[in-house]
Each structure stands twice: as structure tokens, then as C-alpha cells.
Write a protein that binds this DNA or RNA. Structure first.
Lengths: 343, 343
DNA sequence: CCCGGTATCCAAAGCGCTTTGAAAACGATT
DNA sequence: AATCGTTTTCAAAGCGCTTTGGATACCGGG
């Protein structure tokens, strides 16, 4: 069923039927009712492509997934983020589209998106420090919003980000107050902007407490379970080992815990652990009492908010880009305790 | 830049330019070269919607994410699955699209997809036993492929699935050979088809070994870390506790391990554990020696294969639906050992 | 009774592409 | 030189929608 046939069926013009269905005022209530009823009866839906061609809008939001291993870390949070974002998008009639490309070609795909008119806007995931995708997107005029931020980029852009610096600063202070002075940081990849900010918060808290920043206590890599495990084993094996560890994700923290326990130590007593927690649906940090003391910030909610910001931006392209900062809560669980006395 | 302007620029008709770019034979090599060169220079890409409108193909594959909590379990594997599938799809010029709907409306969205012509085919995730979405999709004539299978559906449909029954049967036999007779099963939600098949494999192995199937050793729910933890605590607390546990996912297995260790027992010595392992990029089962003895089957590879099957199906709609069965490997890690002697 | 305004409706153009059916150009053949 | 078969190119229709610029019908006020 298409517009033309529906119009014939009703004895009306395509114009009137189209207007009736799209809520234009220049159509009487009586015919609008009649049209709507017929549309329902024939299960009519306007063809997406035809509508898009006529309106110039795709009603699709793009997201690029680089092939590189470098960005695999997006994976674990991907499901929850998409769940949140698409909930908001679907309310406004937008669908989400994904393209996967070798990361060398990532800038090409944005040009292609633009040229093909395939999407109305894109979401930028996993921003690096000084991420050149931002100027690129601004240059080619494809609306976008960043999930995270990019230090070093001065031109304006919209983003939704967690206050990583403050979160890690608070968490580190919390450990310092518990008497810890050897605090390790198991961080994400150095190039990632969030990793920089987390380290900045961590270092700020240490400096404020007069504790030297020891590079031997800082590790960074893809945030896998194995990475958490491997580095914790190594940290605990070195002389003057840390009494507390900050982990950048729940997944990594699981590895941290495994390493602590395999070493014969007890988490929360011998070694304190604080982790960032994205509040993933499949990896809840305990049901009542959190397993880990954690800095929690729901990535799903971030997705919802980001989607809303992007829709607003599409509807008001000339407004200044929206920049939203989400605060993370520090939840005290059973993985932290007073620093053990030196032997 | 669009076709019309490009054609004017070249002093050719739109027809010729279109044909040149789409590889039709009725155009001389000389002009084809000339056209391609100009297209590159002007960075011309045909508009997706116009092309789709003219060809009647969307070059988009749809995927519906139900809102319900019931299906959250798709989440952890979602990222890897999409990574695999979209790799194949992008080779053929397809994009992937996601729509999120309240699960009551799930059948509506397929009708809408069809009516709007929004997608060329869809992927069905997380099939239930006797899943009515399959007859629905057949009825409305929207090409699809199931990730998994659905017991009870007799009409033909395409699928890619892991041989869950055989995998769990082998794993259970492996435990039986190690002397275990009290083997627990921490399974996914009962309604999910894969959970049924896994249970069937587990029960078949027990029966073959003359071991009674004890309902007190079988649990099923959403496969979260907490679920694995909670049920293992409960299992180990009951009298005549299991000496071995089969877990349905790595995430759940992490909870199983946590419960075992909190109980003061040692995994692999006091309690053996085998888990299904989707080989997720962010949750590798150890680097060299697997942490868990596991039935491994890469969900990412499944995504690649499924995408290929779906593309083939779109290109040859009259061929019988492809049904691919993937075998899972049993990898022996450090979480299994001989059954402890009874005290 | 005529006129201007308002409420309804419509024909047709246009969005950017593919594809049909036909024309033009070109050698090769008689 | 006329004819035929290829090769190469083109004009125009069509995909299903929105939207512009009227047209028509109807109303109350002068």
C-alpha cells in the first residue's frame, strides 16, 4: 500500500492524505479522521526512502565502529549504551545505524555518510586526546556528538561525558583517608581521553596529599579482564607493592580481584580496590551491598541523555553545542578498608 | 554533488554516468574511465535514499532490541556479535540498523519494517522455544535469519547456531570421567531455546552415565554475574552439594568463581567448573592457559557467518534457507580436576 | 448581491537515482 | 553507396513521498 493508492481509495489527492497524516492544519478534522482510519485499516506506512528523499532527512543516526583492536574496549559497554540511546531515539522516530570500517578509513566514512546523505548525525565513540575526527566532522558539516571529550580540541562541539577527573580524584582521596599511600592505577589506553582525565584526578589527589606519583604504580592498556589480572600480579610481586588499586572498569577489576586472590591475599583487607562501574545490566556490582567500592555512572543513562542532546541539536542546528557533564557517585562496597600496617 | 550535475559537468547524460559507475557493459572503457575519474574528483556518492527508492533495496539489515528485561542477556555478547556481522555486511555494502521497542510491540515493528521498506532483511536474536516471531516473519515475507534456533517451529527458516546440546553433553561427560556425580547446571532463562538444548545435553550425559537428574542442582535465570554467584552460594550451602558446576556463560562463571572462593573452597580442586565461553574480545578466558575449562564458540565468528548466510539469502531468495551449525571446542583449563573424595 | 477572507482541497513539480526504449554513431559487409 | 549489426549514448518515465502555488467552496459583512 502506498500514498497514491490510499489516496485513490479515499477519493482524495495525495496532497491531502499526506497532510492529514502529517498533522498539517489545512485539512478538516472530518477528513483527517477518515484518512487516519483508512491508513490504519490498510496498515499504511510511508516508505522511508521516499519520505527521506522528499524531506532531505534520513531519520537515521550513524555510528562508526573502527575495526582496530585499539577500540575494542568500546565493546563491553556497547550493548548498554545502544540500549539507552536507541530508547530515546526511537521516541523521536530515529533509527540507529552502524558501519564498521578499517580505522584508516574512518574519516572517509564520515565523508561518505555526508555525500550519500545516509545519516542526519553521528555519534563519536571513544574520543582520543586531540581527536582529529572532531575538526573533520565540523569541517564537512556533519552534525555529531561525542561520547566523552577530547582534550586539545579548542573548537566547539557537543558532548556528554562523565566527570572522570573529579570521580577519580574523590576515589583516590577516599583511599588516602583510609591511610593508603601506595595506590596503583590500572588505567585504559593512554591515548584515550578518559584515561588521561582519570590519571589527572588520581595524580591531583596524590599531590594534594603529598604522596609522590610513582610511575611504577601506573599501568594502562585495553581494559580487559586479563589486563587487570596481569598487571595486578606484577604490581603485587614488586617490592613495596601497592595497598590499594584503582581500576578503570568492572571488567578489569574482575581480573584485579582474581590476581589478589590467587596471590593469597584478601581484597578489602590486604589490598583495597576501587573501580569505575558503568552499571552494565549484565554485570551489576552486587545486588544489595556493592562487591566493589566503585565510582558508578550508568552508561545506559549516558546513552539516553546523549541521544536527547543530539535530537535537540538536529532540531536547532544553530544553537550552541550542548555539553553535558555527568557526575559519578562513589559507592562504598566491601573491596576497600583501612591500609594494612607495614610489617 | 549529484548525478545530474556530474553528468552536466561531463557533458554526458545521467544514464551514461550511472551506468559507467555501476559497471554496466554498454559504456565504452574510455568514458567509464573519464566518469570514474570525475566522480572521484568531485567526491561523488550516489544518494542512498534516491538509489534505494529507484532500486527498491534498502541495503540495510535490521535488528530489533526488545526493551524487556527478559532479553538483557543479549547485551554482553551484542558488541562482539555486531562487530563480526557488520564486518561481513560492510563488504557487501550493507549497513546494520537497530530499533528498540517495548517487547509487546515487537511484531509490529516487523510489519512496519516491511511496510516502510526500511530494511532488506532482519536478524532475530535470542530465540525462544516455539518462537512466534518466526512464523510472523515468514507470513509477512520479510527475509530473516535466526541467531540460534527455535524448537517447536516446523516451518523452514534460516539460522546459525552453536551445537549447544552436543557441547554440553561433551562437557558433562568430561566431568563424569573425572569422577563427578553431583554436577550442577547454572543455565540461562528456561524460555530461551539455547537453555533447553544445553539442559538436554547435560541430562543426556547424566542419563548415559546412570546418574539421576536432580532438579535441586539445576538453576536458570538471566545470565548475570550475580546470578552465578547467588546460585553457587545456595548450591554449596545445601547438603550433598555439587562437586562440579556447569555455567552457561563466562559472566555467570565469574560469579560462580566468586562464590566458590568466598565459601573458602578452591576452584578446580574442591569444585570443578566448566563454562560456555563466547570468546568475547574483552573477556578472554586467560591468555595462554584458559582460566576456565570451557566450551568455546566465538560469537563474533558466528556474526560473520550469519551475515554471509543472510546476504546469500537476499541474493538468492528462492534457495532453501541456509542452516548452519557451529561446533564448540572443549578447552581444558585450570577450573576442573578429579572429583574430591567423599569425607 | 458582491467582495474579501478563510477553510479545504488539488495538480504538478521536485527530491536523486535507475532503467526502459529508442536514437545516433560507427564499422563492416554487400 | 546502401545496408546491417554493434556499440555507445540519450531522453524520459518512474520509484513514493513532500510541498508549492493555485483553485474551489463557503462564510459573514458591507
Amino acid at each position: 500500500m502506498n500514498l497514491k493508492r490510499l489516496a485513490e481509495e479515499l477519493g482524495l489527492s495525495q496532497t491531502t492524505v499526506s497532510r492529514a497524516l502529517n498533522g498539517y492544519p489545512e485539512v478538516s478534522e472530518a477528513t483527517r479522521k477518515r484518512v487516519e482510519e483508512a491508513a490504519r485499516r490498510y496498515n499504511y506506512r510511508p516508505n522511508s526512502r521516499a519520505k527521506g528523499l522528499a524531506t532531505g532527512r534520513a531519520m537515521v543516526i550513524g555510528q562508526v565502529i573502527p575495526t582496530s583492536v585499539q577500540h575494542e574496549m568500546v565493546n563491553p559497554i556497547f550493548g548498554d549504551f545502544v540500549a539507552g540511546a536507541s530508547q530515546t531515539f526511537s521516541r523521536y522516530g530515529y533509527d540507529m545505524m552502524f558501519s564498521r570500517v578499517p580505522d584508516v578509513d574512518e574519516s572517509d566514512i564520515y565523508r561518505e555518510y555526508r555525500a550519500r546523505g545516509a545519516v542526519d548525525a553521528v555519534i563519536l565513540q571513544g574520543p582520543l586526546v586531540n581527536d582529529q575526527r572532531i575538526p573533520l566532522l565540523n569541517r564537512i558539516g556533519l552534525p555529531f556528538i561525542v561520547h566523552g571529550r577530547s582534550t586539545g580540541i579548542t573548537e566547539p562541539y557537543a558532548f556528554v561525558d562523565v566527570n572522570n577527573t573529579r570521580a577519580f580524584q574523590h576515589a583516590t582521596e577516599f583511599l588516602v583517608h583510609l591511610g593508603h599511600r601506595r595506590i596503583a592505577l590500572i588505567n585504559g589506553l593512554e591515548g584515550m581521553d578518559f584515561a588521561q582525565r582519570r590519571r589527572a584526578g588520581y595524580e591531583a589527589a596524590l599531590k594534594a596529599a603529598g604522596i609522590p606519583v610513582d610511575p611504577a604504580l601506573m599501568r594502562s592498556d585495553e581494559m580487559t579482564e586479563y589486563f587487570g589480572y596481569r598487571e595486578t600480579r606484577a604490581l603485587l610481586a614488586q617490592e613495596d607493592p601497592p595497598t590499594a588499586i584503582m581500576a578503570a572498569s568492572m571488567i578489569a577489576a574482575l581480573g584485579v580481584r582474581r590476581a589478589i586472590e590467587e596471590t593469597g591475599l584478601t581484597m578489602g583487607r590486604d589490598v583495597s580496590v576501587i573501580t569505575h562501574d558503568d552499571d552494565l545490566s549484565y554485570l551489576k556490582n552486587g545486588q544489595d551491598v556493592p562487591i566493589f567500592t566503585a565510582i558508578r555512572s550508568s552508561v545506559r543513562k549516558a546513552g539516553e541523555i546523549l541521544a536527547q542532546c543530539l535530537v535537540d541539536q538536529i532540531n536547532a542546528p544553530d544553537a550552541p553545542p550542548e555539553q553535558r557533564m555527568l557526575e559519578a557517585d562513589l559507592l562504598v562496597g566491601r573491596s576497600t578498608g583501612p591500609a594494612p600496617q607495614r610489617t
